[in-house]
């Protein structure tokens, strides 16, 4: 079952740690968002492959926006 990783708040994408095709484990950091002077790591909640990456560094994401898909 694919995991859709979504933003939980309005934020700037500070760092994209993974690339499409990367294999990740549960708990791995995928991207680091920044909002209100705080860094918020977005972590994988399942193991798998990053099949889709929807953000780039410098992007602004809204609450609920898709960040990536892990399959």
């Amino acid at each position: 079952m694919a995991e859709q990783v979504r933003a939980e708040m309005v934020a700037n994408v500070w760092k994209v740690v993974v690339a499409e095709g990367d294999t990740v484990d549960d708990g791995d950091t995928l991207v680091i968002l920044e909002s209100m002077k705080m860094e918020i790591p977005v972590v994988a909640e399942s193991a798998g492959t990053v099949t889709q990456l929807e953000v780039a560094e410098g992007d602004v994401v809204q609450d609920g926006d898709l960040i990536c898909v892990i399959d």
Partner: peptide, 13 residues
């Protein structure tokens, strides 16, 4: 603060 009062995560809006 505009933040979640439990986890203290930012909550713009």
């Amino acid at each position: 603060y505009a933040e979640d009062p439990v986890r203290f995560f930012p909550a713009p809006g």
